[in-house]
Design a protein around this nucleic acid. Structure first.
Lengths: 242, 242
DNA sequence: AATCACCTGTGACGCCGGTCACAGTCGGAT
DNA sequence: ATCCGACTGTGACCGGCGTCACAGGTGATT
């Protein structure tokens, strides 16, 4: 584990603040936020929320990604989306005071700010700007959910869904990588296992393996550990009908 | 068409107001709402929003239900949810200023209040309570979407999904019907066609027909026109695993 | 009564992908 | 080096359901 993991203690000094939907607040609100939040750092695999639990509060992701999923009684589970830094988690539960809709598990070392349920509700009441931010986040959640529904309900085949997923990842390619070797190649960093990809597209692990193998054989993607390269974006796009 | 369709012109006098998430506003905000809204009555089958169009504004459903769906480029479409009176439609589009996510089609004669995009944005800014209401509505949208994802992604079989759908309808049974004949029978009014049910659970019309036929043969439901009776709730529940 | 549009029911067929089973690979811990 | 656990690759099997095709049914319009 990296020891030099930088912790952002002070929201007022956070360098990312302006780029983040929720945190880009007027100074006064920020000061309040700073006073009610509790910052923690979680290792990979930590559970921030558990589906079905009553909401203790919300989390703001500062750094790191988290997997948001829901599970059936039989143990089958499906990934709703991957939350990026800046997102607020546990909102629906907090606002409607119902149990958490989903389970949140960190995918990597993650810093998050926790705000307790009562504090959060007061915070919203006091600062009207905040509820707009909340609405923005909820909008985003809806859009992701609708995309997922379209993927699950309107795609015909699993290859199509996986192609769609890869292409969506390709829209946020590795920024911190060296210069792309070939003009047409897109490098992405994939930290999900095939099992998780299967949960994302609602299929079985074996099928994901087969489909990826197929893509590789056809020379559409190249997989080297966690860095994948899309070598034939066109072909993947042709597979996608939606 | 009924001519005696009651129109609610005045939000301040609306008898339903308090029961409705969005409309239950303080007097001052209501006056403003009253001044910026435009009331219309639409026949069954009217399209309030079209997926992909840029948002002209939002609609508040006063009476009547509407089907919210999204369509793939191939013409296959899926129903996201059925909107009930009191709901606000077109929110995500209005807030994020992106094209409408979905198509909204009335399922019956429907009264709706339209608020233009700029008016709505100003309205939110001015009255902080409104953005809380908006957040509530968005929360509801998310919850419906997540339920849909669970249904699409975690159910094993189509019969299971249909059973789930029937049971969810049974939670809001016919209120305006006579006394339930048998204690165990639940009467529901179904205005969707089998085709639409198929779109709801992400399957084909034929399969819906077969499954319903099967349920009927087993004596679990009775179908007489638009009123269906669930005669064996237990059996349907046993089919559902989630 | 006749027509038409739109639902609903049903058979036949074939394929996608879920499931089971097991082998191979990789990386980290001892 | 060696072990172990977690992940990945692959073959065999088969059943659910999508698709095509067509036959009733039902209600509105004339």
């Amino acid at each position: 584990m990296a020891y030099n993991f930088p912790i952002i203690e002070d929201c007022l000094r956070c360098t990312f603040r302006e780029q983040r939907v929720f945190c880009d607040l007027p100074r006064e609100a920020l000061v309040k936020l700073q006073s009610i939040k509790a910052t923690s750092v979680y290792p990979k695999g930590a559970m921030l929320c558990l589906e079905g639990q009553s909401p203790r509060g919300i989390y703001v992701l500062c750094t790191g990604k988290a997997k948001i999923s829901t599970t059936s009684s039989e143990g089958k589970s499906i990934i709703l989306r991957i939350a990026e830094p800046g997102e607020v988690l546990g909102l629906t539960a907090a606002l409607s005071n119902t149990p958490y809709e989903a389970t949140v598990e960190t995918l990597e070392q993650t810093q998050a700010n926790f705000i307790s349920h009562p504090d959060f509700l007061r915070f919203i009441q006091e600062y009207p700007e905040v509820s707009m931010k909340v609405a923005k986040q909820l909008t985003h959640n809806c859009q992701c959910a609708y995309a997922e529904i379209r993927s699950l309900g309107l795609s015909n085949s699993v290859p199509e869904k996986i192609a769609k997923l890869l292409l969506s990842w390709a829209e946020h390619p590795l920024k911190y990588t060296g210069p792309q070797k070939k003009s047409q190649e897109i490098a992405i960093r994939v930290t999900l296992t095939q099992e998780e990809i299967a949960q994302f597209v609602g299929t079985s692990r074996e099928t994901v393996s087969r489909v990826l193998g197929d893509f590789r054989k056809k020379g559409w993607v190249r997989i080297k550990g966690a860095t994948w390269s899309i070598t034939n974006k066109r072909a993947l796009e042709n597979l996608v009908t939606t």
